[in-house]
Amino acid sequence: MFNNAGITGGNYAGGPIESMDMADFDRVMAVNLRGVAAGIKHAARAMVPRSQGCILCTASTAGVLGGSGPYAYSVSKTAVVGMVRTAAAELAARGVRVNAISPYAIATAMGTRSVRDMLGLPPVGAGAGDEEAVRRVFDEDFNEMGGGLVLRAEDVARAAMFLASDDAKYITGHNLMVDGGFSVGKPLNVPSI
């Protein structure tokens, strides 16, 4: 089972913590954390009686590196990793593996909205005409690795397929970073348009 739903909430560019919108915080936590908890609960109900199964949860590099996402999003993804570890500690002895995948910024619909917001660009469909700038932010400023490699949704899917496979049968409680080294010290290029 793959818990892959999530929202960033409010303005991705954020603001000072003292002006955080608590209703937005609660909404993000309800989707990103409570949703994962419900997914783990119900998957475990089906998997534990068979003494086998794999539960995957999407976290984020924003959950392991402060300041790389909005408060609510970052906190929710940090909590997802904690929930994965806690569930893995219990469910391992019962034959169920639980792991997290933490991708870096990726050009999905949610990621694109976040970048547009961060750069102060109007929403898609508002006559913006600057999709090339948004693509460049992902491909050059955010996630280009050595050799011209760029993170794509398929790369995250491959990580999920590995963790769900028998090749990962002895891996549980792990947070697989799919981030091209960003979380271990890769400098963030500040996008400029």
Rank of each mutant, 00 (worst) to 15 (best):
V36W: 09
S102R: 00
D139V: 00
G173K: 04
D141S: 14
D179K: 02
L91V: 09
A37V: 08
E18Y: 13
R116C: 05
R113F: 07
K77N: 12
V64R: 15
R45F: 07
G147L: 14
A133K: 05
A159L: 09
G120E: 00
A128Q: 01
N3V: 04
R45C: 11
M110G: 02
G146F: 11
V190A: 04
A93Y: 02
V137M: 06
A87N: 04
M83D: 04
A93C: 04
G53Q: 03
T8A: 14
L151A: 08
A37Q: 08
G69I: 12
V184Q: 03
E144P: 01
R152M: 14
T78I: 03
E90S: 10
S102L: 00
K186P: 00
V124E: 15
G147M: 11
V28S: 12
G147F: 09
A89W: 03
G125R: 07
V137A: 13
D117N: 15
R113A: 14
A38D: 13
M110A: 13
G9V: 06
E154K: 09
K77D: 13
F182W: 10
L119Q: 05
V115M: 15
M83E: 12
G129K: 02
A160V: 12
E132Q: 09
T172L: 04
V96C: 09
C54D: 07
V36I: 13
G129Q: 02
